[in-house]
Design a protein around this nucleic acid. Structure first.
Lengths: 229, 229
DNA sequence: TTATTTATTGTATTTATTACACGAATCCAT
DNA sequence: ATGGATTCGTGTAATAAATACAATAAATAA
């Protein structure tokens, strides 16, 4: 087929599943659509890819426009391409997921979004297009990834307690973990830096605060280390 | 942006990394391009996605046209979307990989391929577009997947010896494995059926032939079993 | 002062991983 | 028919990792 016949008829977009974590709950950032189609419904943020824009840059742009954040963990997860997935034409969409620290920024709805809001993952509204399928796919990817890469820390503030990270793992994986064994395994990797500080103003024994040692992780990876929790 | 402005300017394609295994060597199926651009070079088989064709169907079509095979293991791996990856326009490509039993079929070059040929993975020619990047990505995906899903069997004939499957793992993972430990672990999963038959006409003690028990695997998966080698 | 809440820590048991070598079965060459 | 070449098939002991499990410590609130 002549490639020029194919042009003129199709387009591709990026949709972002932006995860956050707050108060023991995994959340996803949805926008309230201010543009057709499906105007007036909650949906995943996304946009058509610009012609002079790399695919990854497009995903970064969407995240930045919405949250003002850059330098955030982001990864492509899957491309969805059913013929009838978009009511206005043949549009395939490349799904990305991002992990952000909710605390770090303020939401900043854009031209195509009237409003943006965090929704608890266990109670999301019905979504248009194939966005429900995309969201489920992203949740499963996150479950897999969180066990093989230290990306859970991307969802927590820079300083966190061991209970914080355990609760996060329990939320994402939807299982319970043994406290002593979880800590033993995590600390055995020597990837946490003890800040020497403790929680303040909590109505119980304050917990130690740790930071994730990204530099050490990178150097261990070079040496063939593989993260697993 | 109005979606109709975006149409008229871009297209998307599928490229397939088709792996086979023969005589202890992992192979990849390349076509000799008979169409522009890059006419007269070895490349990954691929084609533009038809407007009335689901993305996955497009990947199946490419494989079928080239090999006559359907019902083959196939999975999407990544979408490549640099602005300048295609010299004739803005084309993003969705990469798939397939695992086929080389023995099962005869190659069947199509309109866009003058010739198709298996190339040993350790000695592939330079490839056009970003196909080298795609191939490397696929090799790494295969390494990961083969350890967590029983897809290695897709590359072997229906009946195989324990040495066959071990050699395959050693080729794919590029490591050596201990014979006794590998067998112990593999057999402990109880996913192999002993056919009761043996190799014939080999100049050494003949090995037992096994089959992979796909039904049992599926039922174990339901029960939360997870494959790992 | 006491009650409440969450943090911190170790050990014994079970399970999985690793390292390692020799007799058996077949074909081939003489 | 014998001996040589080749690959097959098998078990155990040592080490490492995963699991199950509960009491004391430190803070605030009442």
């Amino acid at each position: 087929m002549d490639i020029h016949k194919q042009f003129f008829k199709s387009a591709f977009s990026v949709d972002s599943v932006i995860f956050g974590y707050d108060q023991g709950d995994l959340k996803v950032l949805l926008i309230y659509r201010g543009a057709k189609p499906y105007i007036g419904t909650w949906a995943l943020p996304g946009d058509l890819v610009k012609l002079d824009e790399d695919l990854d840059d497009s995903a970064r742009r969407i995240l930045f426009d919405l949250t003002g954040l850059s330098n955030v963990f982001m990864d492509q997860i899957h491309t969805f391409g059913k013929v009838d997935r978009h009511p206005l034409g043949r549009v395939i969409t490349v799904a990305y997921f991002s992990l952000v620290k909710i605390i770090d920024y303020k939401l900043n709805p854009s031209s195509w979004a009237k409003e943006a809001k965090w929704h608890s993952i266990i109670n999301t509204p019905n979504l248009p297009f194939d966005h429900t399928e995309i969201l489920n796919y992203a949740k499963n990817k996150l479950k897999e990834r969180v066990r093989h890469q230290p990306i859970g820390f991307e969802l927590l503030p820079k300083e966190f307690t061991l209970s914080d990270i355990q609760n996060l793992y329990e939320s994402v994986l939807e299982i319970n973990l043994d406290k002593r064994n979880f800590r033993k395994k995590l600390l055995a990797m020597s990837l946490l830096i003890d800040t020497g500080y403790f929680q303040i103003s909590v109505a119980h024994r304050p917990a130690r605060l740790y930071r994730f040692d990204k530099k050490k992780y990178k150097s261990l990876i070079q040496q063939g280390f593989s993260f697993e929790l």
